[in-house]
Amino acid sequence: MPVLEKDGAQIWRRHTLREKLVRWFGWLLGLLVFAICWQIISESTTWFFVWDAPRIANDIWTRATPPRWEYITQLGRPIWDTLNIATLGTIIALFLAVPVAFLAARNTTPSALFIRPVALLIIVSTRSINSLIWALLLIAIIGPGVFAGVIAIAIRSIGFCAKLLYEAIEEIDHTQVEAITATGASRWQVMAYGIVPQILPAFAGIAVFRWDINIRESTVLGLVGAGGIGLQLSSSLNVLAWPQVSLILLVILAAVVISEWVSAKVRGAII
């Protein structure tokens, strides 16, 4: 924040002229990039459909209401499958994430030079690819069905859980570990007594948090054929059965709300 001398009087400005120019240029550049992006989007848009959108939206709304309530009787099994995909996927992911996290944390990795980068690679690659893409891939490999969904959710969750977990491991209090080491405990005992109790609350929190997210994600896995309620959504959409679509969307909404409530309750109980 410079103070300028002008005609003997001191003038305070927040930025110097140079800083101002840089700032304006930055904003200009940002605007330009946005304009180009908008241009590209607009080019590949059929504007006739867009102007027609309110009418279509209204049309869909009238068709979709009221939902076809009696269809709920056919949704029992898909809901059960969805729950299983999320829960089993989370459990498998946790089993795999724990060793990966220990290999990735700076203070527990056996080799920071060779093993840690591999663990980090596993984390980043499983994390950056959406579960729907994993599902696509798995369906191509092992065929459609609930099993592909479970594995897709599991793979996607490994990186997420392992990342949060290894950050928790790196934050532990080292003197507690030192104290257990000083008793003459073996490597595994140090792990079980010095490290595990310290990260257990974080672990439980991560597990419930991820389960909540997985419920959301597993509701749509069916769109690509990986089982669960998404399958019904997909087939209803294909035949334009809007009253069924609206019912399914309501069910998904309810599932999301309930799972968020459950995970908040469980987290409250643990911490």
Binding site: D173, T175, Q176, E178, A179, A182, T183, P197, Q198
Partner: peptide, 21 residues
Amino acid sequence: LRRARREMGMIFQEYALVERL
């Protein structure tokens, strides 16, 4: 070394108890 450490008890500045046990 582990067997030798059993012969030496250690007491720490910040107690270093495992807090959650």
